[in-house]
């Protein structure tokens, strides 16, 4: 009887469902774990007073934590660094990623070249991030940065200006890292645009460039935003490759200035991920900073989850919009 039961498959299905349940439990458990360890960090337990004033104090503590400098135990430089590096990355990666996706979906003919490029895209997505860091250090910092110094900052040599790790190299490395994310997500969006629209545009005597500029890209803009959000979410949590190219555990000054060009591209920055790594494991007083690290982790995860959620929502709306796909004959 038992044999028959197994042959019919019911227990196997249940085991597979168990795998789903376990995966979901792991996600939920991890989230709950982080929330449990981080939400209570700033609750003033040992102070007298009613809960209203405690709540006020609690919120104030959070605010101090989020806006304070590293010397005050806050993570503002890390937040700012994270935001700056991903924004700059977004500026760098979007045009290239979108154009590459357009090539893959609109221009390339099915054949060995297209297959090769697809293999390259998936490979690039699978290259260990630390290898991008190694490339970034050697190629961007030493080679590119060194060349820039030689050309434009001769006077201040041998003190390097760009030939040393800094914000711009961090963003460039991240742009390399997230390029496949942008390409894949944008291409998905392009695939969702009805072929009918393109044909209609061609029928009016538009050139291919005009079809893409005036119809395809505007229609794909939600997909591009989705792609960008996924890329930012991926980049915001990255630490390993950035150790080499300009993310450090603490910075003497923020990479912003009040004078033109406002943004110090060559300055080193710190990021939330780095902050977690450093104060969680590296620092000698790891035991004392542990609760604060959980708070930082919460901030980082909130940022990433919000981006992912927004991307998911956008993608869903995009799918709905083109729910009834149609292709000519």
């Amino acid at each position: 009887m038992l044999q028959n039961w197994f042959r019919q498959g019911t227990p196997w299905i249940w085991l597979n469902a168990g795998a789903v349940a376990l995966s979901l439990l792991l996600v939920a458990g991890l989230l709950a774990f982080i929330l449990m360890h981080s939400l209570g960090v700033f609750w003033p337990t040992d102070l007298p007073g009613h809960s209203g004033s405690k709540l006020w104090l609690y919120l104030q503590n959070w605010w101090l934590f989020l806006s304070g400098s590293s010397a005050e135990g806050g993570i503002f430089p890390a937040i700012l660094g994270t935001v700056l590096m991903v924004l700059l990355m977004a500026v760098l990666v979007t045009p290239l990623g979108v154009l590459a996706a357009v090539y893959l979906h609109e221009y390339a003919k099915d054949g060995p070249v297209l297959r090769l490029i697809r293999i390259a895209v998936h490979n690039l997505a699978g290259v260990p991030s630390i290898v991008f860091g190694v490339f970034g250090l050697g190629f961007f910092v030493y080679f590119l940065g060194g060349s820039i110094d030689n050309l434009f900052y001769r006077d201040s040599l041998p003190t390097p200006t760009f030939g040393t790790p800094g914000l711009i190299w961090v963003s460039l490395t991240l742009a390399l890292l997230t390029l496949p994310v942008v390409i894949v997500a944008t291409e998905q969006g392009l695939a969702g645009i009805p072929k009918n629209l393109r044909l209609g545009c061609f029928a009016l005597g538009a050139t291919k460039a005009e079809v893409i500029w005036k119809i395809v890209l505007p229609q794909a803009s939600p997909a591009m935003v989705t792609a960008l959000m996924l890329a930012i979410a991926r980049a915001a949590g990255e630490v390993a490759p950035l150790i080499f190219v300009g993310v450090v555990k603490s910075v003497p000054a923020l990479p912003l200035s009040s004078e033109f060009p406002y943004l110090q591209l060559q300055q080193k920055i710190t990021s939330l991920g780095m902050h977690i790594y450093d104060s969680g494991i590296q620092s000698p007083a790891a035991q004392d900073t542990e609760p604060l690290v959980f708070a930082s982790a919460l901030v980082l995860i909130t940022l990433i989850f919000m981006l992912n959620l927004a991307a998911y929502r956008l993608r869903k709306r995009l799918n709905l919009r083109y729910g009834n796909r149609s292709v000519v004959e």
Partner: peptide, 15 residues
């Protein structure tokens, strides 16, 4: 399940 991929590995490593 794909949300699992959103956890930065630095946080996983820390925990």
């Amino acid at each position: 399940i794909e949300l699992m991929a959103a956890f930065p590995t630095v946080i996983l490593g820390f925990i």
